[in-house]
């Protein structure tokens, strides 16, 4: 009697585990104000759930590293990464693939912004007069807010940012960078050009107090990355279906929240330049 009960229980547990397709979880690097991110990705979750016919959940995290770790730990299966975080994540999870990127992402760039008290004006290169000012990056793990600005600073001055500026900080995200340079907490900052343009368009920044003084050359940035073992879990062809769903996202409201004008296919090799720069700067081994 007892044995039958135990067997029955075991069987129930087993079938339960097999039948219920695990929830498909995705996350994103917290590169902007959280309210905006939540709005954006809740819409995406609803959209993907509709398209993929499986339960989809968005999990917000507090740092770039936490995004990579959750992806690596298979606690999320899909992520909207930046260039650097995507390269790191794919290195840590063999078989994972870059599925899609924004139309703007192959030619992304960073803006250097300055508080008006510095008197700096837009120029074709970073002027020598930025020396010994205070400067803030975005997050430590950001491509457009850390890696690329640092790379171009090193290229321009031949020194590390710590030696160029009197103080170097990490604001945490691109929205904070704008706020800190606008308030004068830092005199200079570097950030994602898309976030800047969106903030200006929405009237969230006082352009009499802070303005763009230089833009970097272009580089590949954001992309959707999926773990490699998804077909085995969610059924044959699942990865393709995810990719298709992302590519055929045309709802202007969804796209505007990124903000991107659409999504195009991406491959791991597209981000090779980012990997090389990260190695050169010492952010990758």
């Amino acid at each position: 009697m007892f044995r039958i009960l135990v067997r029955g229980l075991l069987l129930m547990l087993l079938t339960g585990a097999v039948n219920a397709a695990p929830v498909f979880v995705f996350t994103a690097i917290p590169d902007q104000d959280e309210t905006q991110l939540k709005l954006r990705f809740q819409k995406i979750a609803d959209y993907l759930q509709e398209e993929l016919q499986t339960e989809v959940r968005f999990v917000p995290v507090k740092s770039y590293a936490a995004t990579i770790t959750a992806f690596r730990n298979n606690q999320v299966q899909l992520a909207w990464f930046g260039g650097l975080s995507g390269v790191k994540a794919r290195e840590l999870v063999p078989g994972s693939i870059a599925l899609a990127q924004g139309i703007e992402d192959p030619e992304f760039k960073s803006f250097f912004i300055a508080n008006s008290s510095t008197g700096l004006m837009p120029a074709d290169s970073l002027p020598e007069s930025v020396r010994d000012l205070t400067f803030t990056f975005g997050s430590k793990g950001s491509t457009s807010g850390r890696l690329m600005p640092e790379y171009y600073l090193r290229e321009t001055f031949g020194e590390s940012p710590n030696d160029v500026f009197s103080r170097v900080g990490f604001s945490g995200n691109h929205s904070r960078t704008i706020a800190l340079v606008e308030s004068g907490a830092y005199q200079l900052g570097a950030l994602n050009y898309k976030v800047w343009e969106a903030a200006v368009a929405d009237g969230n920044v006082d352009t009499s107090k802070v303005q763009v003084i230089w833009e970097t050359p272009t580089y590949p940035d954001y992309q959707w990355t999926l773990r490699g073992d998804m077909d085995a879990v969610y059924g044959e062809g699942f990865s393709d279906r995810v990719q298709q769903a992302l590519l055929k996202m045309t709802d202007p409201e969804l796209l505007r929240s990124f903000p991107r004008s659409g999504f195009i296919p991406a491959s791991n090799d597209d981000f090779e330049p980012v990997r090389k720069v990260a190695k050169a700067v010492g952010l990758l081994d």
């Binding site: 770039y64 590293a65 770790t69 790191k88 997050s139 430590k140 793990g141």
Partner: peptide, 8 residues
């Protein structure tokens, strides 16, 4: 410590 964690 935080930097090292951010760099995985």
């Amino acid at each position: 410590v935080d930097s090292a964690i951010q760099e995985i």
